[in-house]
């Protein structure tokens, strides 16, 4: 097996040895593993790309609320913001990336069709960042596709290095966090970064998502998931910019993944997709829970703050 890698270090060595970008290693690894021709792999990814684009297009055009009404109108607001980008601090590309990320995730909350990349909760970051940069650079469709392969390769390296995509196991850092790292690597390759710069961007991005709790209100993939995707997109772009300017992550990507899993092991179950802690048990969160008629949060999960006199 010539194109297999167990972690990001091996992936980088492989790129240097074969003198290929990460995307090409990912394609070849897939061809090798499943004994398929290159067009088969590409066509499958084209389906992924097209589904992502459909979700974005639907998401930015509607302000329909999700089933429980917690989210639904942010994508359209952000999309209008692109036209006023002169008054914004972020670049047009970054705002568009946020709009697309939210659009995808709001579609998810409305039960629309999306690609779980890496999971449904963190599905907005990668398409948001990549499609926005693709429009900004007016780059070719092929390049866009390659960036998706690069992003997937980072995901595989994370999984193989003992990482996880499951928020029930690792909190939001494993979903939106991993999505952000993948997007940062993908967009860096799209801009012409070297494999080392791609992995560096991923490390910079993931470092800033470490420790993120999964604390969805009422257990719905709506609040804070949707807007976290937007900020994740912004972080991915920042990480890519830093990496392109030569800023190096002091801790290499593999060790960042190890850190992520260390943190996951110490995370309390109340902030691992159980809706029993964090934002889910704030007064606002509890109000929504009551409105939905869900069972009450057990007492031991409430009023944890020291010297607490009770909220609101």
């Amino acid at each position: 097996m010539r194109y297999q890698f167990k972690n990001c270090r091996e992936l980088l060595e492989l790129c240097e040895r074969e003198k290929l970008p990460i995307s090409q290693i990912a394609i070849r690894s897939e061809m090798e593993l499943f004994n398929k021709k290159q067009p088969w792999v590409r066509n499958k990814m084209k389906l992924v790309r097209n589904t992502m684009w459909e979700a974005i297009q639907k998401g930015i055009k509607t302000t329909a609320k999700s089933k429980y009404g917690l989210v639904g109108d942010s994508a359209a607001k952000l999309y209008i913001g692109i036209k006023k980008s002169g008054h914004m601090l972020h670049s047009k590309t970054a705002i568009r990336a946020m709009a697309y990320a939210v659009a995808t995730n709001e579609q998810n909350a409305r039960m629309g069709r999306i690609v779980a990349f890496p999971t449904a909760g963190g599905s907005g970051v990668v398409p948001g960042v990549l499609f926005s940069t693709y429009e900004h650079m007016k780059s070719s469709k092929r390049r866009m596709l390659n960036a998706l392969f690069t992003a997937s390769a980072i995901g595989i390296a994370i999984l193989k290095h003992g990482g996880t995509f499951s928020a029930a196991k690792g909190g939001c850092q494993a979903e939106v966090g991993v999505g952000t790292a993948m997007a940062a690597a993908g967009v860096t390759e799209m801009r012409g970064g070297t494999p080392a710069q791609c992995l560096n961007a991923a490390a910079l991005a993931l470092k800033n998502m470490l420790g993120l709790a999964c604390d969805p209100i009422s257990g719905l993939v709506e609040v804070p998931c949707v807007k976290r995707n937007a900020i994740g997109a912004s972080i991915a772009i920042a990480a890519s910019d830093m990496s392109m300017l030569g800023v190096k992550s002091f801790v290499p990507m593999d060790e960042v993944v190890e850190a992520m899993m260390n943190i996951a092991a110490t995370m309390n179950e109340s902030i691992r997709e159980t809706a029993l802690g964090g934002l889910a048990t704030t007064p606002t969160g509890l109000r929504v829970r009551e409105k939905m008629g869900l069972p009450k949060v057990p007492k031991k999960y409430l009023n944890k703050c020291k010297d607490c006199t009770g909220c609101g």
């Binding site: 897939e30 389906l47 409305r110 069709r113 690609v115 999971t119 992003a151 595989i156």
Partner: peptide, 17 residues
């Protein structure tokens, strides 16, 4: 691990699991 375990599945929301 296939690329399409990371890039997928294509699905109707809201949660992969």
């Amino acid at each position: 691990i296939s690329i399409f375990d990371v890039a997928g599945p294509i699905m109707v929301g809201p949660s992969s699991s």
